[in-house]
Structures are given as structure tokens and as C-alpha cells.
Amino acid sequence: MKVELDEPKCVASGQCVVAAPDVFDQRDDDGVAILLEEHPGAELVDDVREAVAVCPAAAIRLVER
């Protein structure tokens, strides 16, 4: 599983951090998402799917292989 973050689209709502705190964080100065784990383990797949679903900017993609 690979997570892609389209940073220019990010509006820093932080919803990914709420959904998947092990995979995402936010920059302190402007709240823009930080991808902590580009290849998260299978146990995090549900959290990442939720992050994709709740991102208001549609800035996160999950590439499953």
C-alpha cells in the first residue's frame, strides 16, 4: 500500500490526522499535511481509507498493489 499526498491541494483541515494519526501529521505554521509513512502497514489500511474519504480537498490517494 502506498499513500500519495497532493500537497498543493491540501487545505490543512487536519481530517487525515484525526482519521490516521500514525500516517499523517500537520506542519506547525500552516497546518499542511505531512505524510509520516508513505508505505503504511496493512493494519493501517482502514485508517488511511477513512483519511482519503474525509479529506475535503480530495488531496490523498491510496494506491493498493
Binding site: 498543493p8 491541494k9 487545505v11 490543512a12 490526522v17 500537520q26 505554521d29 497546518g31 499542511v32
Partner: peptide
Amino acid sequence: DAPEHTRLRRTVNAPFLVK
């Protein structure tokens, strides 16, 4: 709209960081 909106929103986001 973006990109102006994105720039402006990033100036006001910090207080609303999840942490």
C-alpha cells in the same frame, strides 16, 4: 478560489491544528 484561497487559508489554519 485556489490558488488565492489556498494561500489565504494557510495563513489562518495554525490555530485550528488538530493538536
